[in-house]
């Protein structure tokens, strides 16, 4: 998919991506030559079609997780189907009580995957203690709506 600025005959760049709700995906493209912006809005079916490919428009913010598509898309999975095996972590991470409580509210089917994403986020930024604020920041920066 490419967007062409007809005035400048230039390919527009992806500037922003959001999931504002109602199954809509909003992608903003900008012409670097003239600054013109357009927003592409997909309907829920189109959004679903893209996500069912296991890809994200504009690229990924976190590395693909094992069976991510199956885990995030499946309805009716067993609650206890996956059991996360924690590897020895070179940078020890702590989770404060509120963060542990919030993590416990994530469905167990995807909890291990979500925990790993937050842990990687904290580790990459040198954060030693994961708090609710860190989780909120990660959700916002990584585009983890729904996690």
């Amino acid at each position: 998919m490419k967007f062409l600025c007809l005035r400048c005959d230039a390919v527009m760049s992806l500037a922003e991506r959001q999931l504002p709700g109602d199954g809509t995906l909003a992608a903003v493209f900008t012409c670097e030559a003239c600054g013109h912006e357009i927003a592409m809005l997909t309907n829920p079916m189109e959004t679903q079609l893209v996500s069912s490919l296991g890809v994200k428009i504009g690229g990924r913010t976190v590395p693909p997780q094992p069976m991510e598509l199956t885990r995030s898309g499946l309805d009716g999975a067993r609650e206890d189907v996956f059991e996360t095996v924690d590897r020895v972590d070179p940078v020890r991470l702590e989770w404060d009580a509120q963060a542990v409580e919030r993590l416990a509210r994530v469905p167990s089917f995807v909890r291990g995957m979500v925990k790993r994403i937050y842990a990687d986020y904290a580790r990459e930024r040198g954060i030693g203690v994961i708090t609710v604020a860190v989780m909120d920041r990660a959700r916002s920066e990584l585009g983890l709506e729904g996690m």
Binding site: G23, P44, M45, L49, S51, S52, G73, L74, D75, A77
Partner: peptide
């Protein structure tokens, strides 16, 4: 091994015209 015992294969997503994306989801799985 993944689904609950009596659960059919179903995907989260808009139910209208789901045939359009269901094949992609199954191939992805």
């Amino acid at each position: 091994l993944i689904l609950a015992a009596d659960a059919p294969l179903r995907w989260k997503g808009p139910t209208a015209d789901s045939f359009i994306w269901r094949g992609s989801a199954e191939t992805g799985a």
